[in-house]
Amino acid sequence: MQAFLHQLLSGIATGGIYASLALALVMIHQATHHINFAQGELAMFATYIAWTLVQAGVPYWAAFVLTLVFAFALGVFLQNVVLRPVQNAPFFSVVIVFIGLLVIFNSLAGWIFTYTVKTFPSPFPIRAWYGSNYLSPHEVGMTAVTLVVLVLVFAFFRFTNLGLAMRGAAQNPAASRLVGISVGRMLALGAGLAGAIGAVAGIMAAPILYLEPNMMSGILLYGLAGAVLGGIDNPWGAALGGVMVGVLENLAGAYVVGTELKLSVALLVIIFVLLFKPSGLFGRSIVVRV
């Protein structure tokens, strides 16, 4: 029972990471109807920036904030410079551009920071009071940080006019322009936010996974599985889906398929959900009258 509880809680902790990435993916998908296959690599690259800052002696939380700013700026930049020119191009072209970005950031990280695996610090003390038999202090802290981020993002979209305008621009760009919303700016803002959320996932995952250029490929897969499971048109469903995938992955890894085949759990989740409930568990199915 104790072992089971441990696996369950630890699944929730890693699930928070997947939830963050799933949320980032869904935000982009809602606004552009595309899947940003480079989202994981952007997060990985941002994590290297955090690592560089920490190495240079910047205090951890300052480095954390600076990295989020960097990731936000990177997201805005890529949206405005790389993605905007292809926004009316065929679907295939946009997929290729995202794949191109994935490849570029992966190799850029290898080029600049080498492929040597690096350790990454955790801001949470090894023997903190909030550690327990079930979760390490880092896992507890990581869960808290991702939870705070998710709540902040939720509040932003729910309660601010800017968040509302972003939702509006994603849903109906033409009508948004007619009420004076600059859709291009909202897309850039969304890409920036997604980048920053991804960076949080990267920074929180790095102490566990260690830092290397391919660090995020697995997490991206779990994030995709979470997004599909929760419903790719529902950010909160996707976040919940991410947590569920984390739990599922941990339990399956411990009791069913073994740690070796964990990634296949994500693949299977994706295939099964798309086969039997393509809108996901919490996908919207509202009736639109015309």
């Binding site: 790389v82 020119p85 292809v86 191009a89 065929p90 072209s93 290729i96 551009v97 794949i99 191109g100 970005l101 994935l102 490849v103 570029i104 992966n106 190799s107 850029l108 990280a109 290898g110 080029w111 492929y115």
Partner: peptide, 22 residues
Amino acid sequence: ISKAAPWAIYGALLIAFMYAMP
């Protein structure tokens, strides 16, 4: 140039081809 260079070039060319020569 670098172990990473081929893929950086691949990525850049993928995007460049999509813009200029689909």
